[in-house]
């Protein structure tokens, strides 16, 4: 009885998605999740560092330094304004140098991180600017070192904004992985483009899109939940 139902279900799914190779689909999903997760982690780290540097070197701040501030700002603006698809192409020699190949999920990582980190750095900067100046002054008046101010004031006090920022960035990264897929990085974008679009199998594209939607919804839900939990204001 059970077997029969399950067989019927399977055949029903096969009927509406006749061209979907499920093994291939799960593999592509795994690749997308892999690229998104890894690039989000590294984007968070680099973006946080660059954002802190932008904040601290701004005029009247703890490490006020016109030159470093200008250079960091210029770096962020340049990499933020290059369209992602072009950035991937520009980074081909760099990627070859690191991974020895420009194919596969790992090869997409440099472009994903370099494309997203400056974007996240701007969000970090906005989050840090929202912190009440008085709290930083209070920490200074207690004799806090700059490192203490960074770890115990700046980062904890901007946590909700840092988290909602990385959520938005991570969702954008899902989109970027799809684009990277087109030039051979694998993942759902690759599958949708190569097997769905080029071979005219719209059901493959549809399933890939639905899975991407679920990934995006999940990331957004996770980010919102954590952000709300750490916000004690």
């Amino acid at each position: 009885m059970n077997e029969q139902t399950s067989n019927e279900t399977t055949s029903f799914i096969e009927q509406i998605f006749p061209n979907v190779d499920w093994g291939q689909m799960w593999e592509a999903t795994y690749e997308t999740l892999y690229m998104t997760a890894l690039s989000t982690v590294f984007t968070f780290i680099f973006g946080l560092v660059i954002g802190l540097l932008l904040f601290l070197t701004a005029p009247h701040n703890l490490w006020a330094n016109r030159i470093v501030h200008f250079l960091t700002g210029a770096f962020v603006n340049i990499f933020r304004s290059i369209p992602f698809i072009i950035l991937i192409i520009l980074l081909i020699p760099f990627t070859k140098l690191i991974f020895g190949s420009i194919r596969g999920a790992n090869a997409a990582l440099p472009a994903l991180i370099i494309g997203a980190a400056p974007f996240y750095a701007r969000m970090v900067l906005i989050a840090l600017r929202e912190i009440d100046k008085g709290v930083i002054e209070a920490a200074k008046s207690m004799g806090a070192k700059t490192s203490t101010i960074i770890w115990k004031v700046l980062i904890p006090e901007s946590r909700p904004a840092l988290i909602s920022g990385i959520t938005v960035t991570s969702v954008a990264l899902v989109g970027y992985t799809a684009m990277a897929g087109v030039i051979g990085a694998g993942g759902l974008g690759h599958l949708a483009f190569l097997y769905g679009f080029q071979r005219n199998r719209p059901d493959v594209t549809l399933v890939a899109t639905i899975i991407i939607l679920f990934i995006v919804f999940f990331i957004q839900w996770l980010g919102d939940t954590i952000s709300a939990k750490v916000d004690k204001r």
Partner: peptide, 16 residues
């Protein structure tokens, strides 16, 4: 500074 402490108009507590 640890021996000369300060209190503020807007308290300046860490909300976190």
């Amino acid at each position: 500074r640890q021996k000369v402490s300060m209190i503020f108009q807007h308290f300046n507590l860490l909300w976190s």
